[in-house]
Amino acid sequence: MVKSKKVISDATLVQRIKLGDSTSLEEIVRRYSDKVYSLAYHLTRDTSAAEEIMQEVFVTLISKISSLEKNSYFATWLYRVTTNASYGFLRKEKKFTDKAHVEHIEDEQTLSYDWSSLPDDILLSEESSTILHKAIDSLPETMRAVVVMKDVEGLKNEEIAQAMDLSIPAVKSRLHRGRLILRQALSDYYSKYAQPEGGSA
């Protein structure tokens, strides 16, 4: 009979790391390196920076883990460290852009063209991917982090709120506004495929 191996919780591993257990550290690195690297990459869109950030994040883990009061909050703490390190890179590289247009985004439903029915080869084209990436990169830092954490990395609102030190309504609000900006960018781009009304006769 095959015995199922019991998975050790993050909280237990963190407790053991605090006591100097390097095997537990190795397990945490194995569990979280992809997640940390992916988040750093999608925030910076730079593979070298993402690798450096990942190293920095795990060094911070070694040096600061003793100050983490609730071991069960480890994952969101790690995401926070990753986000802050990514912000640091983006600020250094001056990759945050003008935020003025964000103030003018409203819940407007004046859109007349439903581009959702376009074929996949247009929706998923390289050009539309570039438009979307540029739009994500143009978001202000907190909004960008919330959108990437939710829509790219698939984190829950509660996890994002903990990681970003925001309330859940604040997460939802930034997420919604961020998505509106992305939707607007895609709408502007896809509008060139709109058929003029009555023009197909």
Partner: peptide, 30 residues
């Protein structure tokens, strides 16, 4: 229209990101 395009924006945000994970040599360096 707003709903269709809003929902598809969310879907595309996920689909258009290349999946990235730590390559074995990067893991060894780490």
């Amino acid at each position: 229209i707003f709903f269709n395009t809003y929902r598809l924006t969310v879907t595309l945000s996920r689909k258009m990101q290349e999946p990235c994970c730590v390559a074995p040599d990067m893991m060894e360096r780490l």
